[in-house]
Each structure stands twice: as structure tokens, then as C-alpha cells.
Design a protein around this nucleic acid. Structure first.
Lengths: 137, 137
DNA sequence: TGGCCAATCTCTAGTCACTATAGAAAATGA
DNA sequence: TCATTTTCTATAGTGACTAGAGATTGGCCA
């Protein structure tokens, strides 16, 4: 059995975060030692790795909860799980698109400073005047 | 003079957000009407547009505060402003890179479901097993 | 077996950038 | 004048943690 510290080291998830996931219902309430400390075995470790991976992919706690509920019902169709992954993919693509536009704008702003005093600073002027932007955001 | 509602409509910044910016010191404490309501003129509107634009570009409140402080000293060199913009650009580029890797992973996960039941679901299996991933995240 | 220190426990509060709500007061239009 | 809308302040909630206080437990060494 692993202590919470062992589990943390093995998964790379911080201790308070593990307790937080338990509180949020992503992890079942852990078994306890005689002295009331949490003890974990392999299945909990796998569950935590699942959660970590999903979080790294940007899924919300809520989405992860849905997936965990789904995986508790292996006979159900997996359309729901597909939908969650597809939604996440769409969200990620939208974020990338938005950030690309920002990158363009910032590149212009950050590399084109003509004066050397604040009063002539392109950065300040560009931020003050949206109409200097080339794309919309 | 504009009421807070007028200012909100003209800039697209929500009323509570305007009050929040005032509280955070990004906007000076507004003038007040006899009945204690906030009244705004052109300079405040410009300042708010500046803040909005900077926020859309992903700058933190703290970074915006720095820029505002800088713009209050027009004789200073604009290196600081350049640095803030450049840092932001780097941060945006890093975010894009990270999201690209996630997109790749999610694309694989979301489009490759073989079975039609949860027990065979690729989404669930992929999330459980990081070693199925092609890039690191 | 005692002592010690690291690890763990619970609980609360803080983070960021807002957003929402409640209850009261002011402004506006009919 | 009255009703409706807008604004006011103050407080609490959001998501996903992170940090801290103060108490208890675990494991090791002598």
C-alpha cells in the first residue's frame, strides 16, 4: 500500500491536489491506516494517472467525472466518451486559433518600437488604439 | 459625462468588471454625481479601452498596471514596455506549442474509437494509458 | 521503549479575473 | 407622482488548485 506521498511521487500529482480530487469525487474516499492516514493500491494509482492525463489534455474536472462514470458502465455505447473527446478537440482548436491571432498582433507590437521614450512607444500606443490592429480579437 | 452603463456599452466591458478594475487600481477612482454614481469622460474611456485590449492580448492585471505606470512617465525609456510585450509574446507562443501537441493527441484519441462499447473505447483506454501517447505533455 | 523528525491529518484562506446576488438608493420617463 | 430602470455597496461564488496553521501519526535509531 502506498502513502499519499508515495502516490504523489509516482504520479507527479501534488499531495494537496490528490486530496482535492478526492473531495471533488474523482477519487473514491481512500482506505485509511489505523492512524487515519490514506493508503492507496494499484487501482487508485491508475485512476489518478487517468485524471492527470485528462487534465493535461485540458479536460475539466466535470468532464473527467463524466468519463469516470462512463467507464463504470462498460456495456454502454461509447458515443458519450467520443463526444467528450471531440468537444475537447474543438475547444483546443479554437484556443489555438485565437492565440495565433494574438501572436501576430503581439509580434507586430513587440518588434516595432520606433522611439526610445515612453511617449513614442509603439507598445503603449498599440494597446491604446485597437484600430492599429490588423486582425480582430 | 457617461454613466457606468454608457461606458460599459461603448467599450464592451461589463459593469462589474469596470468597478473591479477601479478596485484593482487600473482605473482611477471615478468622479461621482451628486447621488454618488460614477461619471466618466473621454480619458477614462480611453484608459478602459487600453485595459480591455491588453486583457484580450492576455496580459495580466499586474502587467497592465506596470504599463499604465510606465505611460505616466513619458520621458522614461520604453525598454520596460518592450520587455512586457516580448514576455507576453513568448508566453503566447509557448501556449500555442503546448496546445498543438494536445490537439494532435486528442485528434488521435477522438477519431480512432474501434469498439462501440465503453469497455473497448479508445478514448477511455488512451486516457488511462499515457504510454499510448505519441508526444509528451 | 523513548525520543525525534518527517509525513500526514483537517480546516481555512488565498490565488486570478472576474461574475452573481442581495438589498438599498438614485435617476429617468409617463 | 409613480413605476421602472440603473446604479450603489458589500459579500460570496467560480475553477482548479496552492499555502498555511496546528495537531497527530509513522518510522527509525539508540
Amino acid at each position: 500500500m502506498l502513502t499519499i506521498g508515495d502516490l504523489s511521487r509516482k504520479t507527479g500529482v501534488k499531495i494537496p491536489t490528490i486530496r482535492y480530487y478526492e473531495q471533488m469525487g474523482l477519487l473514491d474516499a481512500a482506505e485509511r491506516s489505523e492512524g487515519n492516514q490514506r493508503r492507496y493500491a494499484a487501482p487508485e494509482r491508475e485512476r489518478l494517472s487517468f485524471i492527470k492525463h485528462a487534465r493535461e489534455l485540458g479536460l475539466t474536472i466535470e468532464a473527467i467525472r463524466e468519463l469516470i462514470d462512463l467507464s463504470a458502465h462498460p456495456e454502454r455505447p461509447c458515443e458519450e466518451a467520443d463526444r467528450i473527446a471531440a468537444e475537447q478537440l474543438t475547444a483546443v482548436r479554437e484556443k489555438i486559433e485565437k492565440l495565433r491571432r494574438l501572436e501576430k498582433e503581439l509580434k507586430r507590437i513587440a518588434t516595432r518600437c520606433a522611439g526610445d521614450q515612453i511617449k513614442d512607444c509603439y507598445v503603449i500606443r498599440a494597446l491604446a488604439h485597437h484600430e492599429m490592429c490588423e486582425s480582430d480579437h
